[in-house]
Design a protein around this nucleic acid. Structure first.
Length: 268
DNA sequence: AAATTACTCAACCGCTGTCCG
DNA sequence: GCGGACAGCGGTTGAGTAATT
C-alpha cells in the first residue's frame, strides 16, 4: 500500500488510492474507513470522511467484523489462525486487530488490559493492547511531525527531568512517550553528536547527566527541592506549558464522534 | 538496477510500583 | 507482611523504508 500520500493530496485522490488498494475484497469497507482515520487523517486533515467514503461506510455498517478477506488478507488471517493460535500473538498489529480493539474500547472503555484482551477475543497480551491503544489508536493521539515549538519544549523538559518520557509526554498533548523518546534518540541526540547548536537555554543534553542528576530530585511526588522557578513551572498545567497548536494542527486529533461507525458495529 | 547503509518508529522486554485479597 | 495481578515506565530491538553507493 502506498503510504506516501502528501498533505496536498485531496479527498478524492485519497479515496481512489484507498479504494484501488483495499476495495478489491481485501478488507471490509470499515477497515478502509479505519485506515483512513488512523493512517491518513493526520496527513490530509479533513474534518469529515469524504462523501464517497461515508457512503461506503454506511454500507459497511451491516457487515460483520468477520467479513471475508482477499488473498492478501487471507495470508494475514492465516498467520493469525495458524497453529500459533493458542500462543499469544506478537509483532505488528493487523487492521482487523486494530478494529477489534478500538471497537471494544469504544463500547466498554479502557483498563484492566488482560481482561480486555481476553474479552475482546484478541490473542494478545494486555500489555500489547494497552501499548497499541495508547501509542496509536487512542483518539487524541496527535500524529505528524514534531513542530519546532514541541521540539523546544522537549529539550527544555528533558533538561529538567531527564529521560522521564511519560512525564514529558504529558506536557505535549497528543504526543506519546514512545514518540518523544524516539524523537529524542533519533533527531535531537543526532544533532548534538553532529555538533549542531540547539539555541535553547539551559539545555543539558547528555543522557548521563540528565538521567542521573535530575531523575531523583525532580520526582513526581517530591517537588520540595525545586527552586521557585522550577516549582512554578512544575505547577503549571499541561495546557499552560504546551505549545499553542494552530486550528489546522488540531485537526489531527480524532473527535469523539469519529468512533460512531465503530460503535455501531455492536448494534448499539 | 542492485546492493548496501542509514534511518525511523512500532512493538517488545524487563523492571518497578501499586493495589488488593 | 506476603504474593499475585496489573499498570506504567524506560531501554532496546528489528522490520520496513529511504538514501546512498
Amino acid at each position: 500500500m502506498n503510504t506516501s500520500i502528501h498533505n496536498s493530496v485531496g479527498a478524492q485522490n485519497l479515496c481512489l488510492e484507498l479504494t484501488k488498494t483495499y476495495d478489491e475484497g481485501e478488507y471490509a469497507l470499515t477497515s478502509l474507513y479505519f485506515l483512513y482515520k488512523t493512517h491518513y487523517k493526520p496527513l490530509i486533515l479533513l474534518p469529515h470522511p469524504p462523501l464517497s467514503l461515508s457512503l461506503s461506510l454506511s454500507l459497511s455498517l451491516s457487515l460483520s467484523l468477520s467479513l471475508s478477506m482477499g488473498e492478501e488478507g487471507n495470508n494475514m488471517e492465516k498467520r493469525i489462525n495458524s497453529s500459533e493460535e493458542t500462543e499469544v500473538r506478537k509483532g505488528p498489529w493487523t487492521v482487523e486487530e486494530d478494529l477489534i480493539l478500538a471497537n471494544y474500547i469504544a463500547n466498554h472503555g479502557e483498563g484492566v488490559w488482560n481482561n480486555l484482551a481476553r474479552s475482546a477475543g484478541l490473542n494478545r497480551t494486555g500489555k500489547s493492547c494497552r501499548l497499541r491503544w495508547l501509542n496509536y489508536l487512542r483518539p487524541d493521539v496527535r500524529r505528524g511531525n514534531i513542530t519546532q515549538e514541541e521540539e523546544q519544549l522537549i529539550i527544555e523538559l528533558h533538561s529538567r527531568w531527564g529521560n522521564r518520557w511519560s512525564k514529558i509526554a504529558r506536557q505535549l498533548p497528543g504526543r506519546t512517550d514512545n514518540e518523544i523518546k524516539n524523537y529524542w534518540r533519533t533527531r535531537i541526540q543526532k544533532k548534538v553528536k553532529q555538533g549542531e547548536p540547539l539555541d535553547y537555554q539551559n539545555v543539558a543534553l547528555t543522557d548521563e547527566t540528565s538521567t542521573s542528576s535530575h531523575t531523583n530530585s525532580f520526582d513526581d511526588h517530591n517537588n520540595n527541592n525545586l527552586s521557585y522557578a522550577e516549582q512554578s513551572m512544575t505547577d503549571q498545567t499541561p495546557d499552560a506549558l504546551a505549545p499553542q497548536f494552530s486550528a489546522e494542527s488540531t485537526g489531527a486529533f480524532w473527535a469523539v464522534e469519529d468512533f460512531w461507525p465503530i460503535q455501531s458495529f455492536n448494534g448499539d
